[in-house]
Amino acid sequence: MGSDGRASLAELGGSGSLISQRNMFDAIGGVPRPATDTVMEATGVEKSFGRLHVLKGVSLTVRRREVVVLCGPSGSGKTTFIRCINHLEKIHSGRIFVNGHLIGYREQKGKLVEDKERNIARQRQEIGMVFQRFNLFPHMTALGNIIEAPIRVRGTPEAEAIEMGRALLTRVGLTHKADVYPTQRSGGQQQRVAIARALAMKPALMLFDEPTSALDPEMIGEVLDVMKELALEGMTMIVVSHEMGFAREVADRVVMMDDGRIIEEGTPDHFFTDPQHERTKAFLSKIL
């Protein structure tokens, strides 16, 4: 789908209609305007867990407003790779840049030295992450989960954060759930709160680590719908997922990983109808 084909917010309507378009746009983080068109650039990323070599030189560039779906068999390194992008995992060689910042490291005489914790925390503010198991804070309400980081990390005034938080809840279809403790709710609701929580930091890039894998089948749709709208609004997204329907419909590019490498990538049309690699064909035949 080209950028012209994206539906405007007005056309989307739906749950967000109570607030003005402009506010809604702010609430979901808006569209970042980096100096370059590249939001994330990874080159030659290598990573091992002990003797297990999980990433064997992964390079990937993701541009502004692009939606990239990472797929591949389990153990292929796709989850590890997106966890490297916000430095939840260390890398052993290669470089990852988000918005032009080298993530997690400083270069000293050509070698990578892990950056100060405070700097890494600052870099992560630009990168939203949604986890397979939601990881909502159980001691906070839905709204509390969302406003925590804006208030504590960004220093957003509480009233403003609450207003934004409520707008985000509306945005993910949970207008009246502000005061519930979300860990007692369905997985679908939890994941939607988790998405709102990540968006509250107004990130330039959203990472989704198998966001629907832990959900009951009937809840998958509601989470994918929120992700679809987010994509249509121009959020830059990297999504690890087995949801090939989502990939076909929403992704600008589908990337196939196998055994720690990217073995194939292309537009959904190309990827699903005319895969080149034998492994991709085998993978698709199993999953479709």
């Binding site: 916000n86 992560r124 990881n135 930091m201």
Partner: peptide
């Protein structure tokens, strides 16, 4: 996962 979620939000 709790600490990871907090870190991913930019918390020190």
């Amino acid at each position: 996962g709790q600490a990871e979620a907090a870190k991913s939000l930019g918390m020190t």
